[in-house]
Write a protein that binds this DNA or RNA. Structure first.
Lengths: 213, 213
DNA sequence: GCGATAATGTGTACACTGTCCACAACACCA
DNA sequence: TGGTGTTGTGGACAGTGTACACATTATCGC
């Protein structure tokens, strides 16, 4: 006897259920944020019974963390995409500054283009123990935070930033950009016109540059 | 016949159920963040049946928004407390700068002292329609954002900030401080030693000062 | 080739949540 | 004093995460 779910699949084995569940989870997160990634709905979309998920994820929270890693990776790729648009010139001070700006711009663009994924990427797990940070990286092998660090290193190498100011600089830059992203997504700046948001984004990046040196 | 809940209360009427539910909700938010404020648990603590909540709040989300307003008010009071520690001197440029720093410091202190309430204060409602911002204000009648605006106005009045740079300045300052708060609460800077966190906080405030002018 | 074994999906069940509906107990006012 | 509106109760339902036993299948030693 075959239920509708199994009939829709045909075979007993799914083939690649883990990947399918993850994709479904990502889709849920994209449209509804972290709270929307619900285990039963993911299995429904995979055409499988709820408990099947437990063969691949220890819990709903485990699934969410996997989705979160995926979201972080998507963010990293968005930042890399912005970096790829840069002219591949010599590592001058100006180009190092442009790197930093591109990193920030990619971050902000992603936050606005994919608010659900962005919020998921930085959602804190309900279960407070085991705070293993999900590692989501882009093509460069670096995560969002790593890309920022690399940009800052470049600034130092190019001579645009004093080495003495380097330690902890990522916290300053990240704070500013992340805070703005929050404002834009569900703070007072939500549904602000795109062009105006872009203006303020540039101003925040100005502030970071000014304040870093 | 009286159930255990009603027996614990004695009277049929509760007296001030709305307030009690709100307080219970705040307590839940304090220890577990926005996801922890669950309607049934609040009614349980109030010694009342779950449905009784619906006489005072339209839905769980409605209760959460009320708690959120309370959290915003607590944040505003924390900022005001920091302001109260300032010497009540003449409105000089230096004192105006100190105001801004105090606003930021109060913000960061609250985030670290009450992470659950802080996260609740800025939780986005699951139901995306009706984004009426809950108004939580302190003794001054201003909310957190209003207090920041007032500090910036003071900077302009004292001559420390050019009026041309005033518009939108709250977004810059708020972004930086809020982003850092997030880092400290559940980002990579979580469980960083208090003194070191304080150091970085001051550096972020430095960045804001530098970057604003 | 074949049978044991481990991996993967199913079925049933339970506790818990938010919320709807009808009803009960009370306060208050004509 | 009695009617009316407010507030709390009881029971029910759908939806969620997850534990347990069971069914089906791939894989590997023989």
């Amino acid at each position: 006897m075959s239920s509708r779910a199994t009939a829709a699949r045909g075979t007993y084995r799914h083939g690649d259920l883990k990947r399918t569940l993850l994709d479904a989870g990502v889709e849920l997160a994209r449209t509804g944020g972290p709270d929307a990634v619900v285990l039963r709905e993911a299995t429904r979309r995979a055409g499988v019974v709820p408990n099947a998920a437990y063969r691949h994820f220890a819990s709903r929270d485990d699934l969410l963390q996997a989705v979160r890693a995926e979201a972080l990776a998507a963010l990293a790729r968005a930042m890399e995409r912005e970096l790829a648009r840069l002219p591949r010139g010599t590592p001058s001070m100006a180009s190092a500054r442009a790197w930093l700006r591109a990193v920030g711009t990619g971050y902000l663009r992603f936050a606005q283009a994919e608010p659900g994924l962005f919020r998921t990427a930085f959602s804190v797990r309900r279960d407070p123990r085991r705070d293993d940070v999900p590692r989501g990286v882009g093509k460069s092998g670096l995560g969002p935070f790593g890309l920022l660090g690399a940009a800052l290193d470049r600034l130092v190498e190019s001579g645009a930033l004093s080495p003495s100011r380097r330690p902890g600089a990522e916290y300053l830059a990240w704070s500013a950009v992340h805070g703005l992203a929050m404002l834009l997504i569900d703070g007072p700046l939500r549904d602000m016109p795109r062009t105006r948001a872009r203006k303020i984004g540039q101003r925040v990046l100005d502030m970071v540059e000014q304040g870093l040196f």
